[in-house]
Each structure stands twice: as structure tokens, then as C-alpha cells.
Simulated scan of single mutants.
Amino acid sequence: MRTAGSCANEYILTRTWTAKDICGNTVTHSQIIRVEDKTPPVFVGTLPRDIKVGCDAIPTAPVLTATDNCGAATVTYAEVRTVGACEETGFIITRTWTATDACGNTTIHKQIINVENTSPAITVEKIADVKIVRQAGDIIRYTIVVTNSGNLTLRNIKVVDPLTGLSETIAVLAPGEKKTFTTSYVVKISDFNSGKVINVVNANGTDPKGNPVTGTDTEEVVVEPLKLNIPNVITLNGDGKNYSFYIDGLEAYPENNLIIFNRWNNEVYNSNGYYKNNWTGEGLNDGTYYYLLKIKNKSGAWQALTGFITLLRKN
């Protein structure tokens, strides 16, 4: 006879043997077997171990199963986060799987995940308002955006742009926060030698543990000189026009020399180096003159340009 116990896997089994003779006399013997379920269920497979990860590498909780020696077992899952957000000090996730059989026997497995905030980052973006400049004196205006692209608050970020002289400090920059700066640069004659203006900006700060965090960006602006525009007349009549031998675009060729000859091939002017666009023909008679302009191009070769210039003092 089987009598149910306190749970599905527990019961009392009563076995009775009866001996009887031919006269009907009997004797009995009973055996009582108490079946108890005290063995907890067992998880199946490899269980997740304790780990240490960054905020962006938290693994998905696996689904665990369990077996029981007396029948089926169910598994429940719970997760506790001690802080609740990826803050500067990190946080701890405690994952608990509980396997329970029909009699309430349980087996518990816990996984501790230490989440460390290890992703500090600075992103620097530098944008010029022009892509090409053509003469000395042109102004390049830059916009610099410094962004905390990590998940740690950064401090004492020094933003330095050596070319323009910009030097700023950001005291505190929270994750996702950005700061914008503007600065400018005046194109120099020497920039035409390299053919470009290369500007590098650096941002250097520290994370909450004092570790350095850096970011940088480079912006290039092409220096493309204007074509030389050489005049063919100087009119010294007081109207303020064409009063000097002004060669437009010459600033792109800082290594140059200008020589002026009269019609008898006598030298009447020599700049003896960089010509400053200031020859007016002062002291010379009206007439036609011959010029020889030498410039050194970007490849380092000297190039000779020749032509005629007419000097007029009256309309």
C-alpha cells in the first residue's frame, strides 16, 4: 500500500506478507518503507563563472537547466545590481540561478560580475571654414569640438593648438558632453612653400583614477597660389590707379627677383631679392621698359618670366 507524503516525491510504502495454514490460522509481517527526497537537483552543463568586464562587455545571462533524481526540476533566475548604472567606480552584478525539485530541495549557483568602467575617451574634431587659400593674408577660421566619447568623467583637459596659439583648459567634462572653441590663422608667405597649412590640435586630460586620456585631430588646408597677374603699364597721373608695378599673386613665390631694363638694355632697377611690389618708375622717363622676373617654383626650380612695361605720367 502506498500512502502519499508531504510532497510529490515522498511517500510511505507498506508491504504486508500473510502466512495461512490449512486450518485458517494466519500470521502477518509488515515492512514500512518511507521514501524521502532529500537530494537537491543538479545543474546541467558548465556553469557561468565569476568575471570582471567593462561596461560595454557585460554578457547576456545564459538559461540554465537542472535534473533531479526523483523527477523534474525548475530553475529560476534573479539579478541584482548594486549601483544600477555605469558610474565612475563601476558596479557589481550578482546573478542567481535556483534549481528546485518537487519537494523543495534547492541548489543555488551565483555568478559575480565586477563591472569596471575602463573606457575613457576624448574625441577631437577640427574643421576649417575653407579648403583652399590662395594668397598670404587669407584667414583660416577653425572650429574645434572636444567631446567626452567615453563613459568616465574627465578632468583638467588641456586643449592646445600650437599653430593658432589656442590654449584652453576644460575643468570637467562629463560622458557625452562637448565643448566648442574657435580660433583662426593668417596665411603666411612661407606657407606657399609647403603647399598646405597643416594644423594639429591636441586634448589631454585625466580619468577619475588619474590616468591620462588623449585625443587629437589634424586639418589640412591647401595653399594654391593665384596665377601671377603681371601688369603692362604704370600711370603716375595721381588717380591712384596703376601707380606701381604690382604683381598680383607674387606672395606665393617668396623667393623671387625683379630686374627692369630700358630700351638700351641698361639695368634701371633691381630688387636684389624679394620684390615688394613697390617699383613706380620714379626718376625714369616715360616709355617702354623690359622686365625680367625670376621666381622659384614649388619644385625648387627657378623660372624666368619676361615682358614689357610701359611707364606713362599723363593720360
Rank of each mutant, 00 (worst) to 15 (best):
N262L: 10
I259W: 04
W264D: 13
W264V: 01
N265Y: 13
W264A: 10
P254I: 11
R263C: 08
I259N: 02
N265F: 10
A252E: 01
R263T: 06
G283E: 07
N256W: 00
Y275L: 02
S271Y: 08
E282T: 14
W279A: 06
N262D: 15
E251W: 00
A252I: 05
N257D: 10
E251K: 10
N278A: 09
N270Q: 13
N270I: 12
Y269E: 02
A252F: 02
G273R: 08
Y274V: 08
E255S: 14
N266F: 11
I259M: 15
E255R: 12
P254G: 07
Y269P: 05
E267R: 15
I259C: 11
E267C: 15
F261P: 00
N272T: 12
N272P: 10
R263N: 09
Y269W: 10
I259L: 13
R263S: 11
W279M: 02
E251M: 10
W279S: 01
E282Q: 15
N270P: 12
W279Q: 05
N265L: 12
N262P: 05
G273I: 08
F261R: 03
N257S: 12
N262F: 07
N272R: 14
W264I: 03
G283P: 03
G283F: 07
E267T: 12
F261C: 03
G281T: 05
I260P: 01
R263W: 09
G273C: 02
N262G: 06
L258F: 05
E251S: 13
E267A: 14
E251H: 04
N272K: 15
W279D: 01
E267Y: 08
N272F: 14
N266S: 13
N256D: 11
N257K: 13
